[in-house]
Write a protein that binds this DNA or RNA. Structure first.
Lengths: 150, 150
DNA sequence: ACCAAAATGTAGCACAGGCTACAAATTGGA
DNA sequence: TCCAATTTGTAGCCTGTGCTACATTTTGGT
């Protein structure tokens, strides 16, 4: 291992490897973020109206319906959803499980943000982007922190 | 169904428009995230060793050097960096300003995470993904919260 | 001074996730 | 019933961000 370091400045940079790993993790989180959003949204639509139509999904996400359909195809490829032509989208068991996990995490993030003083509306908006990058360790810490403040 | 008919079980879904806007925001944040990472890293490298070579940037980010070079080209297109062939990368004034903002935000996010009990190493890793999605409002709240706990 | 290794740059591919445009199926109202 | 609007699906394009392979330039050791 070439410890070719010359990090002799400011608040100490992490090692190359450590830093690369962090970025790698952030990139991989990003690649699942969209699927998580779709699954959670589909779950919500199913719960609140009994069906999840591609057009509704598209409108909620603010994308063209063709985009939604393409991503739903990816959900199916990954075993998270099922659908038949002109019949709406449904979640597999794996999809439901993911949706539940994501929803829980979302609430926890919003609650944590509000607990530290972020206004409710900002908290909701920010959580949408933040939630996908919160590790289990952080999530556990959030839970403890919230429990401790009633 | 006006302002706050929120029951404990199911938090009402937001309106289509509101939700679409949130996702749109998250998507646009994502598109600037990579540039922010590059700019901050380049700034760190310049500060700690006086130069930022594409290969170093690539190694730190954990990507192939060709990928780094391509993204650096984008930084130049966007007026954040300058570089001449075989001569390393430098930041424009805009790039420096962005780097400073990003670095500050990064610290604040890490500190906030640790303040609510997230272990230091998790905090660093999570912050890498989270920071790009933290609004100014949330940032201000973080600052206040941290100030209040000395 | 030279040549090999390292760094840099270029070209071309893949895939994800946007889009528009068009085609086909379904649904609802007259 | 039947036609028009809506919904759904398909095709093809663009951009961003990865990659590998190869070409070129710079650098450093002998």
């Amino acid at each position: 291992m070439a410890t070719k370091s010359k990090d002799l400045a400011t608040p100490a940079m992490p090692t190359e490897a450590a830093q690369a790993q962090r970025f790698e993790k952030a990139r991989s989180a990003q690649s699942t973020a969209l699927l998580e959003d779709y699954v959670e949204l589909i779950s919500d639509l199913l719960a609140s109206s009994g069906e999840a139509r591609p057009t509704d999904v598209a409108r909620r996400l603010g994308v063209a319906h063709a985009t939604a359909i393409k991503t739903i195809a990816r959900l199916k490829r990954e075993g998270l959803a099922t659908s038949r032509p002109y019949r709406g989208v449904f979640l597999t068991e794996a999809g439901k499980a993911l949706a539940d996990r994501v929803r829980l995490r979302h609430r926890l993030v919003v609650d944590l943000l509000m607990a530290v003083g972020v206004p409710a509306d900002s908290a909701e908006v920010d959580a949408e982007g933040i939630e996908h990058h919160v590790s289990d360790a952080a999530l556990a810490a959030f839970r403890d922190f919230l429990a401790q403040r009633g």
